[in-house]
Amino acid sequence: MTVGSAERAPVLVLGLGNTLLWDDGTGIRLLAMLEQEREWGAGVEFLDGGTQGLALLGAVESRAGLLVLDAVGSGVGGAVKRVDGDDLAALRAQRSTTAHEGNALELLEAAVLLGVAPKRTIVVGVSPVRLTTGIGLSDAVEAALPEAVAQAVSALMELTAPPSLP
């Protein structure tokens, strides 16, 4: 391990979304809940990325692990979703144009393009119900939070687990 990497947490938890648009802000709420869930230590950094895109590239570049918390897709409102591995690549290939969803995928694409993509990326989120102007979460999303946090905890455990010996 180099001196440089010792200064920076190997794993980033990135909350994305707009807290002024009801369920769009789910990722930011999950971020706060996950951070308080337990003592994660210096190996994990938590960042509220809002709806930023490329400007977050410096935050995600070359991390060993990246956990993105976000409002994910449409489907049944309040459904907890986890996306990683090949599914994420497929999502990138057919990305939608929703303002911040585009940003999150664009960010990952930019990291891939520069060869600084995190070694492993997992996305955990909840399907939104309400995306109009306002602060708070819909009942369905609120009810899904404990399950979403549990999934985020296990995803983060996977990302922070010491690599198994060959």
Binding site: L21, S74, S96, T98, A99, L131, T132, T133
Partner: peptide, 9 residues
């Protein structure tokens, strides 16, 4: 911002 059900088009 968001209007209608066409956000994913």
């Amino acid at each position: 911002h968001v209007f209608g059900p066409d956000g994913e088009r």
